[in-house]
Write a protein that binds this DNA or RNA. Structure first.
Lengths: 132, 132
DNA sequence: CCGTATCCTCAGTGATACTG
DNA sequence: CAGTATCACTGAGGATACGG
């Protein structure tokens, strides 16, 4: 803040209105979907509305409890909708809101990156561990 | 899995080789930079190499310990380099590797989204809490 | 089918003090 | 300057059982 690098106006692939690091709300994003399951729920719902049990089966390893918690959080933050149909047996459908549309692309970019970087990272980790 | 929606081949803004949700390595990405500080460190280093204390001052609220931990993890995974200059007093510089180049864009996209979505989300949250 | 209620554990984090 | 060592805490997350 005080004297942080007088000539860092160029941000590396920075257009004109590049945000400076200090007002980067990345932590807020991570607070929303940075937990263990929320992102996966969103990805899954990207394929269209899902019912509770459908999600539970689709997302490997998630517990009933954590699915509920994640869904409630996402719903509370306006990222998904919860629709209850007055049927018997009960039927509840979850779907993403329009808010999510705009992150789908960057999120998929991250996934793509992960597929490419995965092996490289594994190698780096192995190298790091075998030093010392 | 069993009967999950036979016609979800269209992924919403999906090109030709859209990855299906089940092999989406988003969790891996989050395991890398999904913690409280790593992403911010990367963002900060996006503005060029930084020294330890420089980072400590730039990243509001981070403790010496967590900065160390985050840096070690990032280094271990090959996302940043650590260069020690044999000076007195000690001087260590951290910089991002080329691996990081390709996520900078999506990461900034997420930040931009957050700036736009922030108020909407706050409103949604308020509405949700004031129901019931 | 769609959850809630409890209990419990442990990894991530922070505070503080010390060091090459 | 650039860390490391210790301790203590918190809350995210899992297991299990129950309920509308």
């Amino acid at each position: 803040m005080s004297q942080r690098n007088t000539v860092v106006t160029d941000q590396l692939t920075a257009p004109a209105d590049a945000p400076s690091p200090e007002d980067c709300p990345l932590p807020e994003v991570l607070a929303l979907i940075g937990d263990k399951w929320s992102a996966q729920v969103l990805v899954q719902l990207g394929g269209g509305p899902h019912r509770f049990t459908q999600l539970e089966r689709a997302i490997e390893g998630i517990s009933r409890r954590m699915l509920t918690v994640s869904l409630r959080n996402l719903e509370r933050n306006g990222l998904i909708t919860r629709t209850v149909y007055p049927d018997a047996p009960p039927r509840v459908e979850y779907a993403t809101t329009s808010l999510v549309e705009d992150i789908r692309a960057p999120l998929e970019a991250l996934s793509t990156w992960a597929r490419h970087a995965g092996p490289v990272i594994a190698a780096a980790r192995h190298a790091y561990d075998n030093r010392r």
